[in-house]
Design a protein around this nucleic acid. Structure first.
Lengths: 141, 141
DNA sequence: GATAGGCCTTCCACTAACGGGAAGGTCAAG
DNA sequence: CTTGACCTTCCCGTTAGTGGAAGGCCTATC
């Protein structure tokens, strides 16, 4: 199977597949003409990688997950720990984004957004460092 | 004011400040010895940048915001539009992360996480492409 | 005066995870 | 034979900085 077909099956771009080979995540065979020859196990791994990446696992996490996947004697505890760490990380990111979101929404709500130059958004961004003023702006940042 | 002091006041690393100068976001003066000399307006801009970045605005957005901030005749509508786009972007990211989170939490919940090799997380990652099986796993990915 | 340390400078390399595009080889169809 | 769709490697670019080396400057101390 050539790279194009492998890409179609795994739903990964060919560029990504070449990259994954380069960093040693997969090692497809080679045809006599130099073309990569993907076995179904390779395509399977690629799909695995695509799913793990879609769950936000880093490449290095994926490398570990893949080796655990291949290791028939692994303990599920190790995988669960990885997943839990990933969940924590995702939660952290969500919380950070949520804080941004709230501040942004608040500022947008304050801004008239018309032809006048007065803008609470810029005013807030440019405000002096927070010397613990009471109730001026909702400064989450 | 030297870069160390500017860093302390703006709460940005010196490295970041040098980078911001390099890409033209600020242009501090120079002392005779070659040291950067930051005016209070420079430090003010740096704080502005720190806040805008903390809200998730890209460097290029920050460049625009800064120029709008300096432009006394700007229309607040333009700023509001930028902020709204940013809000949309943040919402998009939150939604994506939330989907990951749900799938991860589900998989973690399914996994015994003990010394046994059976692991639903790996099983799910490695499952065949979704041929619309009914009720097998909760595949969000 | 010498030296130590703590600043500051520039420059280069590196990060994550690819994407774009050039230059060129291969293959099947018409 | 040519065309067009594949494939190959190689190199550069992305975002927003971070790390480190080599070296200059400044102040204090011995």
């Amino acid at each position: 199977m050539n790279i194009g077909e492998a890409a179609a099956h795994s739903r990964l771009p060919a560029k990504t597949i070449r990259y994954y080979e380069e960093i040693g995540l997969i090692t497809p065979l080679r045809d006599l003409n130099g073309y990569r020859a993907f076995r179904s196990s390779d395509v399977h791994k690629l799909s695995f990688l695509g799913r793990a990446r879609a769950l936000g696992f880093s490449i290095e996490d994926c490398r570990t997950l893949l080796s655990l996947y291949e290791d028939q004697g692994r303990e599920s505890a190790e995988v669960k720990m990885l997943a839990r760490n990933q969940l924590t990380e995702v939660d952290r990111k969500i919380a950070a984004l949520q804080a941004m979101r709230d501040t942004l929404a608040y500022l947008i709500d304050c801004c008239a957004g018309d032809h006048r130059p007065d803008c609470p958004i810029l005013a807030d961004l440019g405000a002096e460092a927070q010397p613990e003023r009471s109730g001026a702006t909702k400064r989450t940042v």
